[in-house]
Design a protein around this nucleic acid. Structure first.
Ligand SMILES: [Fe+3]
Length: 923
DNA sequence: AACAAAAAAAAA
């Protein structure tokens, strides 16, 4: 590049001011930041986009080279808005007068006049992203590209800026009327534009490529990433051993910078890991044996071969029970799809932090093994709110620390909002749901997600509210041609159809979508389990497998009242000669009541969410040791729990009691009934299911809690269709379909009040959808060259990241997360396990304290007051917490010797055996 | 007044 003939005024403009680690005033000339960003975005385009993404960017018929040049130009020109009087007059953040003076002198020496005395009347208007967009508009650049520039701080403008230059002329040109002064600014702005075009090899703005909406989003993401990277002075904060794009001494200028070397060194320092492994899966030599040293099961081979034979596989929905080997299938599928569709890396989304942690372990081992085999270094990220608590994640080597070592590593540059840009990401589903929610810097999530294969686990487990976001996310993933693998228990046909059609619509547009929707092909109502649904090009194929005799199971079903006394006598009778009993109920209070009732009459174990996290983990581990696979089964044990027993725990009951719940959930619970090969008491040798139903003796009256949670409609239908004998697995899809298919409702005149309950149910889901519907982004637009103006505009104007991340979950019951400690009569504080807390050892004990989490449910009208009380208490009792990274912002409660504590007029009592109970204190 | 489980949070 040639800076020799440059107008000295252009070279004197500044982009960044700051203080070096040694306390020296430093700055970065604007032109340097523009060149840095152009170099970075070009490298990102060439090396960090997947082939799929690059193909997407030319999918409207653009020329590949012109797209690359345009993107590089966008990288260069993004801060054109800083070449304005209003910006150049800004003080440094730390109001360093010496620094501000030195930079101003550069400008004056270069030929700007009157800048030191100029009065800018509206200095809060024309922020530099908007100013840049306005200037580009003036230079005749398309509004699509303008919108990308205007949005590079996270949120695009509502529309083109149009009058900003006219309204606030002095912001742009220093003076409202003096043509001589204005000319100087117009000259430098024009020269920067010309420099940029020339830098990327273009002659005029007419040669720039244009973009569709989804292309714009990806380019916006690239720009933000490039800007952040070009604004990183060092690879790691507070450490200057790996410089990237450092500021320069205030007496230096661009003449002191060798841009090629600066960029090469930065890129070398920043690329600490290898690209994801792309390799073809050969079905001829069992990939399952290669990775995990077991031979593929029939079902696994079925899926892997189906994907292998497909011409253009994109969406795969795998419905199969736990234990069918879905995780391995999904990882093989991810590799197949990445190879076929040219994607890089993986996002694996799960419903909870606990399931994410477990999956992280498996994926980390899988990746580590592959990376080592290929001699590569690949980065992996655990992405959820408490990832830092995961020991095995923290134990992974850092990418910068291990130069010649291969395997799975952590790249800590990809932190915060950059996390999703990392290669292999495992975490809570919220990160995918947030991909469909209006929030600042959303383009980064789109950039990160659209280069990967996306796997979504436990698809059946998401509620109506979350599904609003999931569906919208699927539409965008379809639009980006991102391969998606969904894992699920059996789905109602209508839900499965919806999932496929949402993706289909994003991928093929509204017209084709309507054709497929109306076609009512057989795949839309197929009933089978396990079932694989595969989108190959625009064709939907399905595969299923007939179960082997060992996979079949007959379960005898009995109905019973929900009275405690009936349950107790039945349990005692059935366990006369021992046995492991599961009792899964719908509310915590009921689990506790049954626990009290059986206490002393039989050995019991209670499990629900109202336990301190560390204690709950202990109970779950005890459960797995005793009744997990190959467990040391006790002679007699009654396990009483809520829905926490319904998912993910691989445990085996001899007999199961359950509260009436929607059919799919009952079937999910039945999955824990005699699931392994075990020796059982004679009385319990065959599987028995006892369903406890409030309407058993009082017709039409379901248990109050159950009805509040699940609604009358589903309970009524489940009750109606509950057979005397369950044939597993054939009945699983059949019964789920009967309960969820609304078509048959007219035929069931015999269910009293069904129509009324159905109306109520429809109302409730409509309300939920409406509630969720405030924040999702609109579906992708197919209008040609539609700009991203207004893409993130929100009627409610939430743009707070905290509020955004809360919005993807429906909050039914307000609750406060607290850390639970206890004290003795002298006031000595302990962890729940009895470990003494010593103030001087806070740095060692902080993490253990931070893990003692419990959720207190609080009435919504009390929640603000209660939080205030807890904040005040924590501040006075544990003042040191404020400075500790594990405990900052946490709220504490301290149990007395009776294990009680009073907060805001409520007395909470904690029992290691039964969990948390609360009672209101009168007055 | 009550009804499961579960999640989230720094930019250039
Ligand atoms: Fe910038």
């Amino acid at each position: 590049m040639n800076c020799d003939n440059l107008d000295p005024k252009v070279a004197a403009l500044w982009a960044k001011k700051g203080t070096s680690s040694t306390g020296e005033p430093v700055w970065l000339p604007l032109l340097a930041h523009l060149i840095d960003t152009a170099n970075v975005i070009n490298a990102l385009y060439n090396h960090c986009l997947s082939d799929g993404q690059r193909a997407l960017l030319v999918s409207d018929g653009q020329d590949e080279e012109s797209v690359r040049q345009t993107i590089q130009f966008i990288g260069f020109i993004h801060d054109l808005g800083k070449a304005t009087a209003v910006f150049e007059r800004k003080q440094s953040y730390d109001h360093n007068a010496e620094l501000d003076q030195a930079v101003l002198e550069h400008l004056i020496r270069a030929g700007f006049t009157g800048l030191d005395t100029a009065v800018i009347a509206h200095k809060n208007e024309s922020p530099h992203a908007r100013a840049g967009e306005a200037l580009l508009e003036k230079f005749g650049v398309s509004s699509t590209i303008g919108a990308i520039i205007g949005g590079h701080h996270g949120k695009p403008e509502k529309g083109p800026p149009k009058n900003d230059i006219c309204d606030f002329t002095a912001n742009y040109f220093q003076d409202d009327g003096n043509k001589l002064i204005q000319q100087k600014w117009q000259d430098v702005q024009k020269e920067i534009l010309e420099f940029g075009l020339n830098y990327v090899g273009l002659n005029s703005v007419q040669e720039l490529a244009d973009f569709s909406q989804k292309q714009s989003v990806i380019v916006e993401g690239l720009l933000i990433m490039a800007d952040w990277l070009a604004s990183s002075e060092y690879l790691e904060n507070n450490r200057s051993d790996h410089p990237l794009f450092p500021l320069i001494a205030v007496d230096e200028t661009i003449a002191n910078i060798d841009f090629d070397t600066r960029f090469k060194n930065a890129w070398l320092a920043w690329t600490t890991t290898d690209e994801p492994i792309l390799q073809q899966i050969k079905t001829s030599n069992d990939p399952y044996f290669d990775f995990w040293h077991f031979h593929a099961r029939k079902f696994q081979t079925l899926v892997t071969e189906a994907i292998d034979k497909a011409v253009d596989p994109s969406l795969v929905i795998i419905e199969a029970p736990m234990g069918a080997g879905k995780t391995e299938i999904s990882l093989v599928a991810a590799q197949q799809l990445a190879f076929r569709q040219g994607e890089m890396g993986l996002y694996y989304g799960l419903p909870t932090q606990a399931t994410s942690n477990a999956m992280f372990e498996r994926i980390k081992d899988w990746l580590d093994q592959q990376s080592k085999k290929s001699g590569l270094k690949n980065s992996i990220k655990l992405m959820h709110g408490r990832a830092e608590f995961n020991e095995s994640y923290r134990a992974l080597p850092n990418a910068t620390g291990v130069d010649n070592q291969s395997g799975a590593v952590v790249n800590s540059w990809f932190s915060g909002k950059k996390s999703i840009l990392d290669e292999y990401v495992v975490g809570t589903i919220d990160n995918l749901l947030l991909f469909a929610l209006k929030q600042k810097h959303l383009a980064l999530r789109h950039l990160g997600m659209s280069r990967k294969v996306v796997v979504i686990d436990e698809v059946h487990a998401y509620d109506t509210y979350m599904n609003v976001y999931l569906d919208r996310a699927l539409e965008w993933l379809g639009a980006y041609h991102v391969p998606v693998v969904m894992l699920s228990a059996t789905l109602p046909a209508a839900r499965r159809r919806d999932l496929v059609l949402k993706y289909y619509k994003g991928r093929f547009g509204a017209k084709k979508y309507l054709e497929e929707k109306e076609a009512t092909n057989s795949w839309q109502k197929n009933i089978a389990y396990p079932l694989v649904t595969l989108l190959d090009g625009d064709r939907v194929q399905q595969f299923s497998e007939t179960p082997t005799p060992e996979q079949r199971k007959q379960v005898e079903v009995e109905l019973m009242s929900d009275e405690l006394a009936d349950l107790v006598s039945s349990v005692l009778e059935k366990t006369a000669d021992g046995g492991v009993v599961g009792v899964i109920v719908n509310t915590v209070a009921r689990a506790q009541a049954i626990g009290y009732e059986l206490d002393g009459k039989a050995p019991t174990l209670v499990l629900h969410s109202a336990f301190v996290a560390t204690e709950r983990t202990k109970i779950e581990n005890e459960l797995l040791e005793k009744i997990g696979k190959n467990g040391q089964r006790p002679e007699k044990l009654v396990i009483i729990g809520t829905q926490v027993l319904e998912q993910s725990l691989d445990i085996d009951f001899d007999i199961l009691y359950t509260d009436l719940a929607p059919m799919d959930l009952i079937l999910q619970r039945v999955g824990r009934l005699q699931r392994h090969q075990n020796k059982r008491p004679k009385q319990l040798s065959t599987p028995q299911l006892v369903v406890m139903d409030g309407s058993f003796s009082h017709l039409g009256e379901f248990n109050e809690g159950s009805e509040a949670i699940y609604g009358r409609y589903l309970l009524m239908k489940t009750r109606y269709y509950l057979p005397q004998v369950l044939n597993i697995p054939a009945d699983i899809p059949r019964l789920t379909q009967l309960v969820y298919d609304e078509v048959d409702d007219a035929l069931n005149g015999e269910i009293d009040g069904l129509q009324e309950a159905k109306k109520k149910e429809a109302q409730v889901s409509a309300e939920l959808e409406k509630k969720a519907g405030v924040y999702p982004i609109d579906p992708p637009s197919y209008v040609r060259n539609k700009s991203i103006h207004g893409w993130l505009d929100n009627p409610k104007a939430i743009f707070d990241d905290e509020m955004a991340s809360r919005s993807v979950r429906n909050i039914v019951q307000d609750s406060i997360e607290v850390l639970v400690l206890k004290k003795d009569s002298e006031g000595q504080i302990f962890l729940l396990d009895g470990t003494k807390i010593v103030n001087e050892n806070l740095h060692i004990q902080a993490k253990a304290i931070a893990m003692q989490i419990l959720r207190l449910t609080v009435s919504s009208y009390k929640i603000i007051d209660t939080i205030k009380i807890l904040e005040k208490f924590t501040r006075s009792q544990f003042p040191d917490w404020a400075d500790n990274k594990w405990l900052r912002g946490a709220l504490a409660i301290v149990l007395d010797e009776q294990n009680e504590v009073e907060v805001g007029g409520v007395r909470y009592r904690y029992s290691t055996k039964f969990g948390l109970t609360k009672e209101r204190i009168n007055g």
